[in-house]
Write a protein that binds this DNA or RNA. Sequence first.
DNA 1: CGTTCTCTTGAGATCCCTCAACACCTGTGG
DNA 2: CCACAGGTGTTGAGGGATCTCAAGAGAACG
Lengths: 240, 240
Amino acid sequence: MQHVSQSPISSVSSVSPWLNSDARNPIRLGNSISCSIDRKIPINAHLYLEGELQSHIFLVTSGIIGTYKLLADGRRQICRFAYPGDILGVDCAKRHLNNAEALSDSVVRSIPVSAIDKLIDSEPGFGQTLLHITAMELAGTREQLLSLGRKSASEKLATFLLSIARRSALPGNSEVLFDLPMKRCDIADYLGLTVETVSRNFTRLKVAGVIELLSSHQIKIGDIELLKALADGDDFLRLH
Amino acid sequence: MQHVSQSPISSVSSVSPWLNSDARNPIRLGNSISCSIDRKIPINAHLYLEGELQSHIFLVTSGIIGTYKLLADGRRQICRFAYPGDILGVDCAKRHLNNAEALSDSVVRSIPVSAIDKLIDSEPGFGQTLLHITAMELAGTREQLLSLGRKSASEKLATFLLSIARRSALPGNSEVLFDLPMKRCDIADYLGLTVETVSRNFTRLKVAGVIELLSSHQIKIGDIELLKALADGDDFLRLH
DNA sequence: CGTTCTCTTGAGATCCCTCAACACCTGTGG
DNA sequence: CCACAGGTGTTGAGGGATCTCAAGAGAACG
């Protein structure tokens, strides 16, 4: 591993429109589309499989959709947990390059790619919004690279819990109390671990008082500062 | 880990323009820009650092640029090796979310983001090209997630060598003979391994006859089918 | 109240990491 | 021409984090 060794080339510039295109509320994207259809996806059903022609883009309305890739022998890597408000399938390839499966009973709005084409041409700023959504997803995926490549199991789990807390805090409980809708094996396949290791690290966080498990799928953060320290790899705070 | 359990929702659609926007030759993007500047970046110099305001987009002209993220204690994850023709910095955030460093003496064309804005407005199809570039990078990053999360050290190295071979085959040698411009520690930080493990697995591939090391930075693939099998995790072919 | 799925816990094995030494290469200077 | 130093790459020995295999506890559901 290496460290920063030389000062960079840089200069300040004015704020750029495409850097800040309005993608704060992606739901808007769905609402502006006339030919969209809401569709119920029961748990374990697939939205699409790798290799299929890409016909729609999906906006998650409720539930959780997982996108994942498989190796020949069945090893699975979950790339992303898509929550309500998230967009799936802006992949710019004729065929899907991964699989998408409902990890809980879900509803998605499916938008034909032909409609996307029309919107790009007709609605100014729409293309920028798509670009922004895609770039944000790329940033999140890079964050996950760091987790998978360089963090220990407990650091991975702490990082994961914080990201889920941020996205799914129950109203009035400000990121401290939240649901964990996916199964342990899904978490394991997201973090590049086994179910057993995930479970053991939940227990470690619990006995250390960092989190409480109200049930196995409902979490209350006991010490969020400690959790953040663990996620960032401040090892001197490591649990024993 | 889980397997596909239910048939997906899908339908065939006609080919969509934005799915296939012309990004085959991204160099075109650079040439069409009037206010771009070529800049030499010596090895170990940084193009930008995490947290800096994003002022330019970069097109790599020669050399190799690595983008990476760091943890507080110095652990490093390289996200990408950018080769000539590759675009850096379409991140859609005011500030850079990672670092970019020249891993060999390099030349980049830097394009102010203000120019990008103008091009998006003025040149039809430019926005789609940017979207396509970003989506392709996302697809590659997901592929790397699979590698980092679910592949063994030897599978990771085989996968990496194949991807580099595809991109940098010397003319007339069709992907079998190629240079490996980055250092072993860069490969390690890209694959989520240590230098020692990378080196050991180079040796394993060498003694098994899968590759030849003409020098430590010049590779000749001896058995590309075996290398592909190793990369995909066909474990029954595993080296002993 | 069984059945099945999920989650947890334990014991042993294994892959990869850590620490250490050495080999190789390049440039510098004597 | 050789000595030396620093960066890089390879190899070895031992340890530890995570995996594998196995069993049992808990939860959901008919």
